[in-house]
Design a protein around this nucleic acid. Structure first.
Lengths: 161, 161
DNA sequence: TTGGAATGTCAACAAGGCTGACGTATTCTG
DNA sequence: CAGAATACGTCAGCCTTGTTGACATTCCAA
């Protein structure tokens, strides 16, 4: 392949790839500790996060966002419901659907997890500066494929508390 | 918590967190397909990547970088050696050590995996622009914790290919 | 009204993490 | 030189979290 102006050398790309690998490990390290103490895994965190984000969402909805099979999600969801962190209510309009919401205990755990994860992201943002943050998000967005990007955009536009 | 100038609002942090989640999925999607075809998983990719990066590295070294137990790494390594993708040779200076290298077949697979993963990163970089890339790397570096950052730096300074 | 699509649950299996215990070869150290 | 420490491999067993397959319930449209 002819290198040409604007073409990133192979070593730059490898560096970026390694940065993603190591950064993702750091990104999940703090919540993982809390989860492990409580006997949960990363899948539980993801479920709590997105239920918090879209209260009353259905199982199917969550499936699409998380990109796993319904059987896989169901196992996680079942333990969260048994442990009283998530509430599942039969749909009023469509009784096949289950609407998912966090209980007070669920909100508390989600808050703890978000707290430690946000702290790290906040520190990284503060240390790298606002322009770096803009670049960070721009590259990440481009790294998603179309479907993931749609989910991301939809959630972003909801605005969060 | 009193918000003050320069303090990122919670919603910005949540957006960044979700961006990391979705982007990481995209980041691994293409290599995952190739790996799955060959009956391998992400763990095999990581081993191949870092052996390629540091030819002749020892098992202990790889353990530290990957952050897994030797039992876990051993399972992956054993299949790669059996399948003739990795070669393990007894250390010359210290015969307790095993030095790991890719065979020709191992290099070929690593090249394929790197090819598709780099393609996506390259496209993202090209589309976001060089300043965004600088910001991207800056934020990722800050997101690592100290030990991971050391590994990252050591590898980066080796230079590429 | 009935057959198919959609939604969700249960069962069983595999990958790949983990801990703990142990064996062997080799090197280092007191 | 004897014994401790290091590097590596392996066995056994556990957990999380992904998968497929089979099934019940509910809705909707022909």
């Amino acid at each position: 392949m002819e290198p040409h102006a604007g073409m990133k050398p192979d070593s730059d790309l490898r560096r970026g790839i390694e940065a993603m690998f190591f950064a993702y490990r750091g990104f999940t390290a703090d919540p993982d500790r809390i989860l492990h103490q409580r006997g949960y895994g990363r899948a539980h965190h993801r479920a709590l996060h997105f239920i918090h984000r879209s209260p009353g969402t259905t199982v199917n909805n969550l499936l699409a966002i998380l990109g796993v099979t319904k059987q896989s999600l169901n196992r996680v969801l079942r333990t969260l419901i048994e442990d009283g962190l998530v509430e599942s209510t039969v749909g009023a309009r469509d009784k096949r659907e289950r609407h998912l919401d966090l209980t007070e205990a669920g909100r508390a755990l989600e808050r703890d997890l978000n707290e430690v994860q946000s702290a790290r992201v906040r520190a990284a943002y503060a240390s790298a500066g606002p322009e770096a943050v803009a670049g960070f998000e721009a590259v990440l967005e481009q790294m998603m494929d179309a479907e993931l990007f749609r989910h991301y955009k939809r959630l972003s536009e909801l605005g969060g508390t």
